[in-house]
């Protein structure tokens, strides 16, 4: 009779039957983590700054890569080729200049002085955008089809900011990029 008093194994119930759910979640989570770490090491976002991109132009060839640089405000020219909007501008980084032709809508915050991260490739040719005289003007341009903005951590309401933007736009309109 003492056997009936001893603790017995719990009967399989709904709670035990559903134990596979957290186990499955843990397994899927572990798999996802592996995929994400692999994705990070393959460096899909890794970008070259403008000076590095020029240094590596030979090895990059016409492969797609990601470029980072700061648009020179007075170089920006917006137009279109057929139905497609085109924005041509020059980016700078580390003292190097790269002429860029971006096809598609530019980013909402795109403006001179705010760094951009672009996806595209080198093209050994003149940009061919009406009104755009690239500041690099070295026979190459970077053809981009995806633009992201890499804004900084300054959150300032500068009263002179709008004035400076207007001055840069006036300088561009007059073709005086040195201004």
């Amino acid at each position: 009779m003492t056997e009936t008093l001893a603790p017995q194994a719990p009967r399989p119930g709904r709670a035990r039957g559903r134990r596979w759910i957290p186990a499955a979640i843990a397994g899927v989570v572990a798999l996802l983590i592996v995929v994400l770490v692999w994705n990070l090491f393959t460096g899909t976002l890794f970008f070259y700054n403008a000076d590095e991109a020029i240094e590596r132009r030979g090895e990059l060839g016409d492969d797609r890569f990601t470029l980072q640089g700061t648009p020179v405000g007075c170089s920006i020219v917006e137009g279109s080729q057929g139905d497609e909007p085109v924005t041509a501008f020059t980016v700078s980084f580390g003292g190097a200049l790269v002429d860029v032709v971006h096809r598609g809508e530019p980013a909402e915050l795109f403006e001179g002085g705010t760094p951009v991260v672009l996806d595209g490739n080198w093209v050994n040719d003149a940009p061919g955008v009406v009104g755009f005289d690239g500041l690099a003007d070295d026979g190459w341009y970077y053809s981009s089809d995806r633009m992201r903005v890499k804004h900084d951590n300054d959150y300032i309401n500068d009263e002179e900011y709008e004035d400076r933007l207007e001055q840069a736009a006036d300088a561009a309109a007059s073709g005086d990029c040195a201004a």
């Binding site: 994400l36 994705n39 393959t42 899909t44 795109f110």
Partner: peptide, 14 residues
């Protein structure tokens, strides 16, 4: 601000 919701290669996001 960045012009994208997400980037799978962005080290901070991932």
């Amino acid at each position: 601000t960045w012009n994208t919701y997400w980037d799978w290669g962005d080290v901070r996001l991932v």
